[in-house]
Simulated assay, not measured.
Amino acid sequence: MTRPEKHSLTLRGHRTSVSLEPDFWNGLRGIARDRGIGVSALVTEIDETRGTDTGLATAIRLFVFRHYRDRA
Rank of each mutant, 00 (worst) to 15 (best):
M1N: 09
M1G: 11
T2Q: 13
T2G: 00
T2A: 07
P4L: 02
P4C: 04
E5T: 11
E5I: 15
K6C: 13
K6P: 09
L9M: 09
L9K: 03
T10C: 06
L11Y: 06
L11M: 01
L11V: 08
R12Y: 01
G13L: 12
G13T: 12
H14N: 06
R15W: 05
R15I: 01
R15F: 06
T16K: 06
S17N: 14
V18L: 11
V18F: 03
V18H: 04
S19N: 07
S19M: 01
P22R: 09
P22G: 00
G27I: 03
G27R: 06
G27T: 05
L28I: 06
L28V: 10
L28S: 07
L28E: 09
R29G: 07
G30F: 11
I31A: 08
R33Q: 15
R33N: 14
D34N: 14
D34E: 15
G36V: 07
G36I: 07
I37H: 06
I37N: 04
I37E: 14
I37V: 15
G38L: 04
G38H: 10
V39E: 13
V39R: 06
V39T: 14
V39M: 13
S40R: 01
A41C: 02
L42A: 04
L42Y: 04
L42V: 09
T44P: 00
E45N: 07
I46P: 07
D47W: 06
D47C: 00
G51N: 05
G51T: 11
D53K: 15
D53C: 05
T54F: 06
G55D: 13
L56G: 03
L56S: 01
A59G: 11
I60D: 02
I60T: 02
R61H: 09
F63P: 10
F63C: 02
F65W: 13
R66C: 14
R66Q: 15
H67I: 00
H67W: 12
Y68M: 00
R69F: 15
R69I: 00
R69A: 05
D70S: 13
D70P: 03
A72Y: 11
A72S: 14
